[in-house]
């Protein structure tokens, strides 16, 4: 069988499977086990793809080491750490609670995640400097929304106003709080749902084109 024929058969199989899963999801009276079949399949595929990803990383970096490509010592280090961590989890009686894995999580993974997350604020600051500007197309509206949310979400009024004027400021801030809430409830939520719907439609179109063999 030629490669093109194999592709067509696979696409046909995918198409039938998709129809089956959509039907199982939508038709009344379908057994629950059949309804869950698709999601269980996704779970299995995701687990397998995780393992395939590990194999791919191993193969890629082994090739770099064998060919002596640039920075091959880093590839060697990556494979050594991967083998050590996987070995500690798979071979020791404690399994995932082995001391080495605990140390790796506490000393490397957790601080790394926190550091990367903390750096987000720097990128946010750079973006705010560049985009929240009067004169940019749409920049004024973004700036007004930003200031409004900052005003109602943070204790800035406490900083900016004397303590004896806070009760008066509270009555002034109430309409602003309501305005901020309206912005989030109506336009922001409408835009968010529009994005979700648009994204879903795009996925349907892409899926249909794939199943029909359209490039």
């Amino acid at each position: 069988m030629s490669a093109a024929a194999r592709t067509h058969w696979l696409l046909a199989l995918l198409f039938l499977l998709a129809l089956l899963l959509i039907g199982a999801e939508r038709l009344p009276g379908t057994p629950a086990s059949l309804r869950l079949l698709g999601f269980e399949t996704v779970l299995l595929l995701a687990g397998v793809s995780l393992l395939l990803g590990v194999v791919n990383v191993l193969a890629l970096h082994l090739r770099r080491i064998v060919l002596g490509q640039q920075d091959w010592p880093l590839s060697l280090l990556l494979i050594a750490v991967l083998i050590a961590v996987a070995g500690a989890g798979l071979l020791t009686p404690a399994g995932a609670a082995s001391p080495l894995l605990e140390w790796v999580f506490d000393a490397l993974i957790a601080p790394g995640q926190r550091a990367l997350f903390a750096m987000l604020v720097f990128f946010m600051a750079a973006a705010a400097f560049q985009f929240l500007r009067i004169g940019r197309p749409g920049g004024l509206w973004m700036l007004v929304g930003f200031l409004l949310l900052l005003l109602v979400q943070t204790p800035l009024p406490l900083w900016l106003l004397p303590q004896n004027q806070l009760p008066a400021a509270a009555s002034f801030l109430d309409p602003l709080t309501n305005a901020a809430r309206w912005m989030l409830d109506v336009p922001a939520m409408a835009a968010l749902r529009g994005v979700l719907l648009g994204g879903s439609l795009a996925w349907i179109v892409i899926g249909a084109r794939l199943l029909l063999g359209k490039p």
Binding site: V121, M124, A125, A128, F129, L132, L143, F146, L147, L150
Partner: peptide, 17 residues
């Protein structure tokens, strides 16, 4: 820390303008 961070962000926005 959070409050002064928000205040600093506001200062950076003003600086950008």
């Amino acid at each position: 820390g959070q409050s002064y961070g928000a205040l600093t962000l506001l200062a950076i926005v003003l600086l950008g303008n």
